[in-house]
Simulated assay, not measured.
Amino acid sequence: MDEEKRITVRLPSELHDRLAALAKRDHRSVNSEIVHLLEVALAGQPQDAGSP
């Protein structure tokens, strides 16, 4: 099993509401939806990409 890290993220209420709606639609928890969206956003990005 992959090691998991726990973080705290402050989100605007409106963004949380949007995430919760997507999660419900996709039958996922809000946490799982965030992980999924991050994985999709980072797909194809070099792992060692630095900021310009």
Rank of each mutant, 00 (worst) to 15 (best):
M1D: 01
M1K: 02
D2P: 07
D2S: 12
D2G: 04
D2T: 00
E3F: 00
E3A: 07
K5A: 09
K5V: 15
R6V: 15
I7E: 03
I7D: 02
I7H: 05
I7R: 12
I7T: 08
T8V: 13
T8C: 08
T8S: 13
T8P: 02
V9E: 00
V9S: 04
V9W: 07
R10P: 01
L11W: 03
L11T: 03
L11Y: 06
P12K: 11
P12C: 05
S13N: 07
S13L: 10
S13C: 01
E14W: 01
E14S: 12
E14I: 12
E14D: 04
E14M: 05
E14H: 08
E14V: 15
E14Q: 10
E14Y: 01
L15K: 12
L15W: 04
H16F: 15
H16P: 00
D17G: 14
D17S: 13
D17H: 10
D17A: 14
D17Q: 14
R18I: 15
R18Q: 12
R18N: 08
L19R: 02
L19Y: 04
L19A: 04
L19H: 03
A20E: 14
A20M: 07
A20Q: 11
A20W: 03
A21Q: 11
A21P: 01
L22M: 13
L22R: 10
A23Y: 02
A23E: 01
A23C: 12
A23R: 02
A23Q: 03
K24I: 09
D26S: 10
D26Y: 07
D26H: 13
H27R: 08
H27Y: 13
H27Q: 12
R28V: 02
R28M: 13
R28Q: 10
R28A: 03
R28N: 04
R28T: 03
R28F: 02
S29F: 12
V30L: 13
V30G: 08
V30D: 07
V30W: 06
N31E: 03
N31D: 08
N31Q: 09
N31T: 14
S32W: 07
E33Q: 15
E33M: 14
I34G: 01
I34Q: 02
V35D: 04
V35L: 08
V35S: 03
V35Q: 08
H36K: 07
H36N: 10
H36D: 04
H36P: 00
H36S: 09
L37T: 09
L37N: 05
L37I: 14
L38D: 06
L38G: 13
L38Q: 03
L38K: 00
E39D: 10
E39F: 14
E39M: 12
E39C: 10
E39H: 14
A41F: 06
A41E: 07
A41Q: 08
A41N: 05
L42C: 12
A43C: 09
A43M: 11
A43E: 10
A43F: 14
G44R: 05
G44E: 09
G44M: 08
Q45R: 13
Q45E: 11
Q45I: 14
P46G: 09
P46I: 05
P46K: 15
P46H: 13
Q47W: 08
Q47I: 12
Q47R: 10
D48G: 06
D48P: 00
D48Y: 02
A49K: 15
G50V: 04
G50H: 05
G50Y: 02
G50D: 05
S51W: 11
S51G: 11
P52Y: 03
P52I: 02
P52H: 06
P52W: 04
